[in-house]
Amino acid sequence: MLLCDFHIHTTYSDGSVNLRRTVDLFGQAGFDVIAITDHVVNGDNTMGRLAHKLKFSVREDNFDEYMGRIRQEAERAWDKYGLLIIPGVEISKNHLSADKSAHFILLDIKEFIPACWDYKRIFTEAKEQDALIIACHPHHMSDLSRDTLFLWNNRERYAKYIDAWEIANRDDVFNVISLKKYPYIANSDFHKVRHIYSWKTLLNCEKKIEPVKQCIRHNKGVAITLFRR
């Protein structure tokens, strides 16, 4: 089984550990597959503009550099640790109301997609790029300040676009995902070193990008595990 974490932030957005150190941290701990998924924040409201100002978001002008650095690190990680790195972003539609906010990962993205586009347009563009769409922390979390409920509240409309839902995020478990029988994975939402000890995904597939994506999409050979000291 491959030990995986598909939700990791670095200093390219609001993570506290830079990309190289993040890769080393996961490599040293024996991970098989990780995805670097820094925030792409909507810049169409005050919160979003503030995130852009504070450089807590990957932007269109630094997206190529971001992807280039991930590719470099992916090569190094593969040679040194046998660690597969998948590039991605976390589209972050932040609003004051939790009901209007949504975060979702686009895994194996190729071109920049702005977070201020409407949902349907983003999902369609992501599908065209053959990226995987994963709904992040879709239900109520223990940290009340960052609930993102839009996708869950509008699941009838958007579930068809979503390849997997986070059934567990860091310390939280969302049993509603299993009750609805949605495809699931579990991630750390890594921002700080200590977040490495959190829920993770185990995949029974080949250690290559396409088989990993297929495994998540079909949700066969997927398990979750709590990675802790």
Partner: peptide, 9 residues
């Protein structure tokens, strides 16, 4: 036993 800092290296 468990993951020490820098275990792989």
């Amino acid at each position: 036993k468990g993951i020490d800092d820098n275990l792989f290296d």
